[in-house]
Each structure stands twice: as C-alpha cells, then as structure tokens.
Simulated assay, not measured.
Amino acid sequence: MKVQPEKYLKYLLPNLSELFGTQRTREILSVNPTVVPKREEAQQVVITACCYTKDAIEEHKNISLEQALDLRNSNKIVWINVDGLRKADVEKLGERYGINPLLQEDILSIDQRAKMDEIDSILFCLINTLYFNEQKKAVEHEQISMVLGKRMVITFQEDLSRDPFNALRERLKLPASKTRTRDADYLYYTLLDTIVDNYFIVMEKLGKEIEGLEAEIIKNTSKRTLAYINAIRKELIVLKRMIYPVREVISGLLKSESELLEESNERYYKDVLDHIVQAIDLVDNYKDVAMSMQDLYLNNVNLKLNEVMKVMAVVTCLLAPATIITGIFGMNFKAIPLLENNNGFWIAIGFMILILIWMLSIFRRKRWF
C-alpha cells in the first residue's frame, strides 16, 4: 500500500495557499501581452448622455444605441457614457464618431496597460480606475476608455454597478459649473482628474490597513501576520501597475499638438500630472513601509527566539552544578565523602540550592534576565 502523506498533512497544517493568497498572485501575474484574451459580451449595456452649453443641459438616461448615434448632430457639447461593452456597439459608435478600428480594439481589450493615442483627429486615453474592496482587503480596477473629438467625449466602462463619474454629472447640472463654460477638452481633463483623485482615496484606505498591520506586528507575530504582509505587498504591485503608466498618458497629452486641446487648459493637465507624480511617490513610500514591516516581523521573530534561547541558556547554567554534583556522587567508588552519612543526601541538596541561589544573584547583578 502506497503511503500518501499529503492526504493527512492538511489536518495538521493550515491551508497555506489560502493563508498566503496564491490565487491572488496568479491573478496579478497572469497578464501576458502576447496572448489576446477574449472579452465576454456584456449581458446588459447602459448608455447615458449629457448634452450641454453654457446656459442649458440635457441629461439622457438609459438611451438606445440609435439615440446615442443621433446626438452627433447636436450643436452642444456631447458626453456619451457606455457602461458594458459589446463589440457591435463599439463598432457602430466608432463608425459614427470617427473612432479608428485600432482604437476600437484597445477599447475592447482586457487588462491593457494605460496608454494614450492620437489618430484621425481623435484623442484616445485608456486608463484604469481603482476601487478598494473592504471585504477582501484588495485593490480592484476597472478599465476605462475615453475618446475626445470635436465638441464630444465618449467614455467606455466595463462595470455597470460602479461609476466614478456620478459626482461629475451632478456638478454639470449646476449653472455656475466651470465645465459648462469651456470646451470638451476641459470635460476630458475633469474625467481624468476624477480618476486620479480616486487613486488617493484607495491609497488612503490601503494606508489604514498598513497602519493596522504595523500595530499587529508589534503586538503579535505569527504566520498569519506574515501572510497579511504578503497580501499588502501584492496590492502594492497592483497599485504600481495601474498608476505608474498614467504619468506617461498625461505627459503625452501635454506634448500633443492636437487642435482639440486648448492652450488655456494646459495648466489643468499639468495639475493632473502633479497629482499622479504625487500618487507615484506615495506608492513608493508604501512599498518602503511594507519592506520595513517585513524587517520588523523578522526582527520580532528573532527577538522571540533570542528570548527563548536566553531562558534555556539560564536554565541550563543553573542546572549544570546540580548535574555535576549528582554525577560525582553517582560514580562507582567505594570511598566517597558523605556516602555513609545519614544526612548526606540533604547536605548535597542544600549545597545544590546554595549554588543555585549564588548563581541567580550573579545573573541578576549582571542583568542577564
């Protein structure tokens, strides 16, 4: 009969794959640019649109694709938002609004790196917005594609349940809104700024997790604590992957000579660049803190081990004289002092205790414990 130890080890050891989140590692490292993943068609598509001028705004909710196509004739600035991606819908919108097929492929891509392109008088940005899952303690991302054309902006989102632009829609309804008085490139800036500002919200929540973990390491050092450190480092990898390329996107917009970008709005894009550089610095700081937490964990483990070894060394030293005395009186010689004495046993014990007390006083004086 062949013995299978792995069959019984699961009852003795914790599930390390679950503890250290190897599934999360596979998710993070599974991106392969040479393999084009197939996107599943969205079960539901929700299209909303805002058409506005300085004096008026029209909001269209849950409109059909045909209605979205007809907005092209509007003299107002048009912002179309598509939640849920289907290839046929993207192609129709692309054909109607002059979006190049290469950009359509980027819109339908999965786990694409943040990028910026300028094709056929269209400015295109692909960027990831971030969310923090409180239950899983994990950073989640959603790919957002943004198209800027003449007096129009189109945004494509994947997730129907979460929308980072709800607050922006409410601001657009205000007559005094600055966005209403400017061209479509200012709206484009506002969308980018909203996504970048959301990075700081996610990093703030992750920072609280790091602070709590640091306190936990000081109070309690265990394998589970090490697993939490490992999980935090994985989330920082996600942050780095999603945030670092955005700097190139904003820099590309600033370097662009497109007529779609007004020179007067350049300072706003520079402000977004400053924010993203600050976010990158914050990610680097978090990485340093995570490394210091790992060092702190190892130092605590070594400190506990040293304490155990110190106690064992003290006990060994205290027992050494008694061991020597018992060894001497256990030798096979006929003539041993106190061997025939009726009180020899108690004398030997008393001598051992005196030596023990003497050694303890020396250790205390030297502050060894």
Results as ranks from 00 to 15, higher is better:
residue 232 I to P: 02
residue 307 E to D: 14
residue 356 L to E: 06
residue 313 A to W: 01
residue 130 L to E: 05
residue 281 D to R: 11
residue 283 V to F: 05
residue 336 I to E: 03
residue 197 D to Y: 04
residue 276 I to A: 03
residue 58 E to Q: 14
residue 58 E to D: 11
residue 110 I to L: 15
residue 233 R to V: 01
residue 29 L to A: 15
residue 96 R to Y: 09
residue 354 L to T: 13
residue 285 N to A: 15
residue 280 I to H: 13
residue 166 N to S: 02
residue 215 A to E: 15
residue 261 L to P: 03
residue 335 A to G: 00
residue 307 E to G: 01
residue 132 F to Q: 08
residue 166 N to L: 09
residue 122 I to F: 02
residue 79 W to V: 01
residue 50 C to L: 13
residue 237 I to N: 05
residue 160 L to Q: 14
residue 74 S to Y: 09
residue 93 L to P: 07
residue 272 V to E: 01
residue 207 G to I: 02
residue 52 Y to N: 01
residue 251 S to T: 09
residue 148 L to R: 00
residue 149 G to N: 00
residue 218 I to L: 10
residue 348 A to K: 09
residue 188 Y to T: 06
residue 155 T to P: 04
residue 117 D to M: 10
residue 139 V to S: 09
residue 149 G to W: 02
residue 96 R to V: 06
residue 323 T to G: 13
residue 143 Q to N: 03
residue 337 P to V: 06
residue 301 V to R: 06
residue 200 F to E: 11
residue 38 K to P: 10
residue 329 F to R: 03
residue 61 K to I: 13
residue 260 L to Q: 10
residue 136 K to E: 13
residue 169 R to G: 02
residue 216 E to R: 12
residue 17 S to M: 10
residue 124 F to H: 03
residue 251 S to K: 04
residue 39 R to L: 15
residue 127 I to S: 03
residue 236 L to A: 14
residue 229 I to V: 14
residue 271 D to W: 05
residue 357 I to N: 04
residue 1 M to Y: 09
residue 6 E to G: 00
residue 339 L to P: 00
residue 95 E to I: 14
residue 297 Y to S: 10
residue 256 S to Q: 07
residue 301 V to H: 05
residue 298 L to W: 03
residue 53 T to A: 06
residue 119 I to L: 15
residue 32 N to D: 10
residue 29 L to F: 14
residue 124 F to P: 07
residue 232 I to F: 12
residue 168 L to S: 11
residue 329 F to Y: 15
residue 230 N to V: 00
residue 350 G to P: 06
